[in-house]
């Protein structure tokens, strides 16, 4: 029994010693705000339907649905870029 406990401890230490994988930051509310700012920088040049899409994305981020919000903002930005 003691050797089983020692083995478990060793495994647990080894797991703790392993550094955690790097984290992706592009699904955070901060990034959502960064995208909203990027869209806002386009100003009144963006077509109305893309502004509506970007607003929806911003709203989703505010409501906590960050990934959906980011996706809408990215789509709006891509469409705007394509329009350019």
């Amino acid at each position: 029994m003691p050797w089983v406990c020692a083995l478990l401890l060793l495994v647990s230490f080894a797991a703790r010693a392993q550094p955690a994988a790097p984290r992706l930051l592009s699904d955070s509310p901060e990034y959502c705000a960064e995208l909203a700012g990027r869209f806002a920088a386009l100003g009144a040049e963006a077509p109305v339907h893309l502004r509506v899409l970007a607003d929806e994305g911003r709203q989703l981020c505010v409501e906590g649905q960050t990934r959906s919000g980011i996706a809408k903002l990215r789509r709006a930005l891509k469409e705007a870029q394509r329009g350019d």
């Binding site: 592009s26 699904d27 995208l35 990027r38 990934r67 980011i70 996706a71 990215r74 930005l77 870029q81």
Partner: peptide
């Protein structure tokens, strides 16, 4: 920044 901003597939 630009590439990440239009990465719809994430």
């Amino acid at each position: 920044g630009e590439r990440l901003a239009v990465d719809i597939d994430d």
